[in-house]
């Protein structure tokens, strides 16, 4: 059942710009550093001894924002596919479980975001190598900075999907999306428990992994709550 639904979801996201956005996000984040480093590499090299690490930090400065923006846009696209002609009633009158439909949507979205993370990792590595920092590539840190934000952003994805899936008025998901972006933008002034801060991987323990783990845990909880709410609701 899940396999079929996933294939159907992948079919439905054709020609909607999903793939384009998935590529645009990570490429854009690295492109900013391309500009940054080509304009003032001479200055930047004076700021730190460990050029690779400094470069990774620079890249990751924009990762959370791109991720949360991507979540808002992809999720609202995803919901609009069904909402446009109220295809919910057609889809859910088929022999499918509502939980499976919800899971399929979540899986496709998180799959796209994970793919974006892979691309971020590759793009970061490739451009980093062209800069000739010297010394070995800090593989562990590269992976951490590429993939922890994805896990740390899962609560935001789960929340956004929930709102998008149950709202008849698409104003709500847009509002939530804007709030998510603003809160992520002001992550530095947020307390540790606010999950908008987590994609920045900053926390008082100074351990990026905690942000990722908390994201995974809380993301799952919000996902479950959202799914149960979706199942309980009548289809309009």
């Amino acid at each position: 059942m899940m396999g079929k639904l996933l294939r159907v979801e992948l079919m439905k996201i054709r020609r909607k710009g999903f793939w384009f956005l998935t590529f645009l996000g990570p490429i854009g984040v690295v492109a900013l550093q391309v500009v940054n480093y080509s304009v003032r590499w001479d200055y930047l090299r004076t700021l730190s001894d460990d050029h690779w690490l400094f470069y990774l930090e620079n890249v990751s400065g924009f990762t959370p924002l791109a991720l949360v923006l991507g979540i808002a846009i992809l999720t609202s696209f995803m919901a609009s596919i069904e909402n446009e002609t109220n295809a919910w009633k057609q889809l859910l009158a088929l022999p499918v479980r509502k939980t499976s439909v919800y899971l399929a949507k979540f899986t496709v979205l998180s799959g796209l975001l994970f793919l974006a993370s892979v691309l971020l990792c590759l793009a970061t590595l490739v451009y980093g190598l062209t800069l000739d920092f010297g010394g070995g590539v800090p593989i562990i840190e590269l992976l951490e900075y590429s993939f922890y934000p994805f896990f740390a952003a899962l609560p935001i994805l789960a929340l956004q999907l929930w709102v998008a899936m149950v709202s008849e008025n698409q104003g709500w998901p847009i509002t939530v999306g804007v709030l998510n972006v603003i809160l992520t933008y002001s992550a530095f002034s947020l307390p540790d428990w606010a999950f908008w801060k987590w994609p920045t991987l900053l926390n008082s323990w100074e351990e990026p992994m905690y942000s990722g783990l908390m994201g995974l845990g809380v993301g799952l909880v919000i996902y479950m709550v959202g799914m149960m709410n979706f199942v309980r609701r009548d289809v309009k």
Binding site: K4, L5, V8, K12, R14, E84, T85, N86, P95
Partner: peptide, 25 residues
């Protein structure tokens, strides 16, 4: 079933719409 207005995915072709459904049924 056909409930109220027909539901479909406008960015897909008629064939693809039916194919999306066929995969499930």
């Amino acid at each position: 079933s056909l409930v109220e207005n027909p539901s479909y995915y406008p960015h897909l072709t008629a064939y693809e719409n039916l194919e999306a459904m066929r995969k499930i049924v």
